[in-house]
């Protein structure tokens, strides 16, 4: 009994970690370029363009205003099309990644806005093109802030993935849902809680450490 509970919790924890980090990874893959574009097309920036900027901003805002649980359900046909199923961990990755990407885009945009405009100016004076400025100046300078935002994102994803558990995404969320909502098991519920909190603390701690390591301001 005890053993099977431990296995259950550890499995749940593992699934939560995998979901969090994988969807974080895919979320960044989508959100980073989106955030860079949002920044570059903004007012007074290198690719200033009101039309594209407003378009991207509206797109991002729409996605950010949809409650995650609704997004999961709404995306079921698309999820099924991409991964062939709408339940389980890999199915959860699709809405998680897509749901978090606009959030990441905004965070990335904000990180880039913190880079002093004088640095972009200096790079332009050296003859750097837009792509070079992004790669050689903006991203390295914003790195500590981007890492902080990555921690925030991962923590958000821990929460999202737990929500996904309610619709069969696996992970600690599902464990908590099954043993808490459908027949209350105090030990499992408390363990789920402690594990989730611990996970968030660890992510924050490691994130802070890495960000600090890259911060030379």
């Amino acid at each position: 009994m005890y053993d099977s509970t431990t296995v259950l919790l550890l499995e749940g924890l593992w699934e939560t970690i995998v979901m969090t980090f994988l969807s974080g990874f895919f979320g960044f893959l989508l959100g980073l370029p989106l955030g860079i574009l949002l920044f570059l097309t903004g007012k007074g920036q290198l690719l200033e363009n009101r039309f594209y900027n407003s378009f991207l901003a509206v797109f991002v805002n729409i996605f950010r205003s949809i409650p995650f649980i609704i997004l999961i359900v709404w995306m079921i046909p698309f999820t099924r099309f991409i991964v062939g199923t709408s339940i389980g961990m890999s199915a959860a990755l699709v809405p998680l990644s897509i749901g978090v990407a606009p959030f990441i885009a905004r965070l990335v945009e904000n990180s880039l806005k913190e880079v002093p405009s004088g640095l972009i100016e200096a790079a332009r004076a050296m003859g750097a093109g837009t792509f070079q400025i992004v790669r050689k100046v903006l991203l390295p300078e914003a790195l500590p802030s981007l890492i902080n935002n990555a921690s925030i994102t991962l923590i958000t994803l821990v929460g999202y993935s737990a929500m996904g558990g309610a619709v069969g995404a696996g992970g600690l969320g599902q464990v908590g849902y099954q043993y808490g909502y459908i027949g209350y098991d105090a030990f499992i519920m408390n363990s789920v809680l402690v594990l989730l909190v611990a996970l968030v603390f660890i992510i924050q701690f490691i994130g802070d450490r890495i960000s600090q390591k890259f911060n030379h301001k």
């Binding site: 004088g118 200096a122 003859g127 100046v137 390295p140 030379h216």
Partner: peptide, 18 residues
């Protein structure tokens, strides 16, 4: 290419902190 041959320095130095 021309800008590469025109150096520029600034009041607030504009060095990359990273």
């Amino acid at each position: 290419a021309e800008r590469e041959k025109i150096g520029m320095i600034f009041q607030h130095f504009n060095l990359l902190s990273s």
